[in-house]
Every structure is written in structure tokens, then in C-alpha cells.
Design a protein around this nucleic acid. Structure first.
Lengths: 251, 251
DNA sequence: TCGACGACATAACATAGGTTAAACCACGAT
DNA sequence: ATCGTGGTTTAACCTATGTTATGTCGTCGA
């Protein structure tokens, strides 16, 4: 046992029993390394697995008929990817590696085992799905009703918050490995306009863009221009799992 | 027992055992009637229940600091609303009635009972969450990378498809009860521009807008201008639940 | 029957952001 | 060292969509 990707992730939510750990461990298959820009899966391919990201960054996207594309979501180490497609036979979006990465596959079919064998794990999976939705919702607000500048600031702040939860140290010249083109596709902008807007944010001392990554210089400043409200990332872990845990004791 | 909102909805996915039905029935509280424009809940209020919509339409929205708002999702009879907030203590979006409506509350806490007592119901809930995400994803594409005209067409087609699943007869002069202002807030447009674009779509014989509702005249035409691909609404119900059902037999 | 209100319609004008194009820069492969 | 490729930068120009304003229409409550 030991080095399972997903166990570490789940222990963020709750301590797990040995039984739970064994179950998760039995699900996990050998990790798969993917190269930068390599495709993990494509739109339309069958959905046999979901994955945890153990190293590196990946992103989900959708190619449009007119050659343009929409980046739908970004995943950092610790995130679970592909749970969305649980109900679908085919992938509704593609998944690419943004950097060199490592992902751990789980057979989708064995989710049934989780549901039937562990109440705690079922709840955690459901929490994760709920959190994912909440992130998507905020992304909708971002695309629908914010200016380019606020979009960028908001997106960057969100990523920094998500990284913080996985214990990445943002503050110290950490470079977010996003190209301006990718940001454009994520936010419904053109790459040129992302560049223009970056220029502004740089002038104001908020970020330091450059080859190979964006550095966040003033998180509070960014939050202000974004109108950032962190509530959509604050799960009520204890409230949700407290009852479940007490049942474990009872039974 | 008998007239439970949610049982009918779940039977769309799978036949239920008597035990499952009893469980669902025991969860459901007395239906609540809401008036057109009445608020069901507001941003920040505690998340004690989720609901099934049994009659009428409701929508989730988010008010922005600058007075503008984003409509996040629309729910028609049969939809489940509030599952998103499963992991959160407070609602991250408001919910209003679009028309007079009737909703059936379920205490969120009792989801634990579902998970612990019924494998089939657990799976169905998870499928619904997955489908919800898939709809949000498509909305993201819509907001990020489509023209105003395509946005409107796509949104209208999606709604018609969702209605079709609940056996509403679209074809016969059915009027979708959406105002232009609400559509604007859903699609990140201004009400004026929605009006302009409706004018075009009307010229082309695709829709018939008017007081109190939009009539869809040419669904195929709308699909074409929207670039509509229905795959994101096609769950693989049998594939997902087949295994679960076979376990029921086995045990 | 009146008034008030909300949705719809249309016009004139303003602008955020798109498009195209051309340099430039860094870096990995040969 | 050199080339090619992908990311960045900047500039000039363009257009889809926003804004403001004003008027009409239908409906509902008093």
C-alpha cells in the first residue's frame, strides 16, 4: 500500500479507516506519466477511467467547429479529473497535459464498490463533485459578467487559492505555468487582448508575466480588481462528514 | 405513499424497488408552492434542503456588486435543484421562481441515509450530479466562444431538449416563459442586444418571440445556427446502472 | 377606468475587445 | 551554432455588442 495518490487527497477531507484505504488502494492502477502537451483523452473517446493528478497540471478543453476552442477547466496536483463524465459513455471534452504530469487511473466501473462498501468515501466523492460544480458556477459568472481585467485577475486568484490548499508555496516567485493563449481560451478572450490586459496588471504591480509562467506579486490587489469572494471554495467539510463519522462509531 | 415528486423523476433512470421508494418517500417533505418572482432562497442563506421541481420553472442567479447579475441555471419540472450546494454551508447562488411553481424539499442531512441504504439511489444521485456538470460545461462553451445569435439559439434548443425529456409537448405553440431580460442575464448579453438578435431569428422564421413567451418554430434551423451537438445531454443510463442492478439480483 | 409597472421595441452613439499582421524572443532539436 | 517553433509584444484598424434614451404595448391592481 502506501503511496496512493488518492488516499492523500481524501485524507484532506477526513481521516480514513484502514478498510477505506485498502479499498482506494485496490482501485488505483499504475500511475501514468504524460508529457507536456500530450493528450490524455479526446472528445468522444470512451470513459473508462477517471484520474487523480499527482504531479503537474492538466486542462480540459473543447474544440469548436470554427477552429476556436474553449478551455473548460484546469487541474492541479491533488485534483480529480473525469468524475464529470461518470454518467456518460463518451468524453464530452478533451484533456491535455499543460506540463509534464503524472496521473493515476481508476476504473470508473469500480465506483460501485466504493458506494457499496464505504459510506464515508461515498460522501467524500459527492463533496468533490459538489465542489467541482461550484467552481464551474463561478467560472460562469466570470465569463458572463466580468471585464477582461477582472476575468484574468479572478482566474489567477482562484488558481492561487486552489494551489494553496495543496500546500504549494505561491509567494516565493512561484510561476504559474499558463500561456497567454491558454488563458485567452479559458476566459473567452483573444490572446492579443490578454496580452494588453497583462500589460495593465503589470503596470499596477499586480503580476509579473513572462516566458514560461506568471508570477503573482500582489494577491490582495488582484482580489480587489477581481471582486473575489472565496466562499465558493470553502466547503463545509466537518458539517457534512461529522454525521457520517459518528455513524462509524455507532456501528 | 404514491405521489412523490422525486420517485417519478428517479424512475426515469431505473425501476425502483419498494424499499427504494419507501426511502425516497420518507425523505420528502410537504410540497411548497412559490409565486412567480418569489425568492426560494438567497445567496448566503443556510443550505438545509434540496428540492425537486414538480411544477413551474425556477432559476438560479448571482447578483454582482455592480448591480448586474448572472443567471446560472434554469430548472424545469422534474429537475433537482440545490444538490450543488451539498458540500457547502451557505448557498452560493440565489434561487427564484420564474413562474408560479411547486417544489418538494428534502433535508440535505438525510442524504447519508440514501448513501447507506441504497446503492441504486446513490448511483442515480451521482448520475444526476454528473449530468448537471455536463450542462454547466456546455453553458461555459456557450458563454465563452459563441456569438450572441448562436448563444441564444443554443440555449433555446437546450431547453427544448430538456423539456422533451419530461414529456412536455414543445411543438404545439408551446411558449417558453423566458423574458428577454432574463435571457440576457443568462447569456452575458444586454437586454437590448437580445432584442436585436431575436429580431433576426424571427426574420429567419426560427422563433416567434412575444409577450409572455418564446415559441420555437424551427428546431432544426435553430440547431444549425447553434452548432448544437446533443451528446452532452445523453447519459449512458443502462451502462451505468446495469451493473448496479445485477448486484441487486445477486445479493 | 385609470394609473403604474414591466416587458418589448428601436434608434443613436460609444467602446471593449476582436482581427490581422509583423517583429521579436527563448529554447529545444538537429 | 543554427534553425524552427511556440510564446510574447505592439500597432492599426474593425465590429459585435453595450449604453442611454425614449416610446409603445399589455396587464394587473385599485
Amino acid at each position: 500500500m502506501g503511496s496512493s495518490c488518492i488516499i492523500k487527497h481524501f485524507e484532506y477531507y477526513s481521516p480514513l479507516s484502514d478498510g477505506d484505504k485498502e479499498l482506494l488502494d485496490s482501485l488505483e492502477k499504475a500511475p501514468r506519466a504524460v508529457r507536456k502537451n500530450e493528450s490524455v483523452w479526446q472528445q468522444g473517446s470512451p470513459t473508462e477511467h477517471f484520474y487523480t493528478v499527482s504531479k503537474g497540471w492538466v486542462y480540459a478543453y473543447r474544440n469548436m467547429e470554427d477552429g476556436t476552442r474553449q478551455v473548460l477547466d484546469l487541474f492541479v496536483p491533488g485534483d480529480i479529473v473525469g468524475l464529470r463524465e461518470f454518467a456518460f459513455r463518451k468524453r464530452i471534452s478533451g484533456l491535455n497535459a499543460l506540463t509534464d504530469a503524472e496521473i493515476c487511473p481508476f476504473p470508473k466501473k469500480r465506483m460501485v464498490d466504493v458506494f457499496s462498501q464505504s459510506l464515508l468515501l461515498s460522501n467524500i466523492f459527492f463533496m468533490i463533485a459538489s465542489r467541482d460544480q461550484s467552481i464551474l458556477l463561478e467560472r460562469l459568472v466570470n465569463l458572463g459578467r466580468r471585464s477582461a481585467k477582472a476575468k484574468l485577475a479572478h482566474f489567477l486568484v482562484e488558481i492561487s487559492q486552489r494551489l494553496a490548499k495543496t500546500n504549494v508555496d505561491i509567494s516565493n516567485h512561484y510561476k504559474i505555468p499558463l500561456s497567454q493563449g491558454l488563458l485567452a481560451d479559458a476566459l473567452g478572450l483573444s490572446a492579443v487582448h490578454v496580452n494588453r490586459t497583462f500589460h495593465e496588471l503589470k503596470e499596477e504591480g499586480l503580476i509579473n508575466p513572462g516566458h514560461g509562467g506568471i508570477e503573482l506579486l500582489d494577491l490582495e490587489g488582484l482580489k480587489k480588481v477581481a471582486g473575489f469572494d472565496p466562499c465558493y471554495l470553502d466547503e463545509d467539510i466537518d458539517g457534512m462528514l461529522g454525521e457520517v463519522r459518528s455513524r462509524y462509531v455507532a456501528s
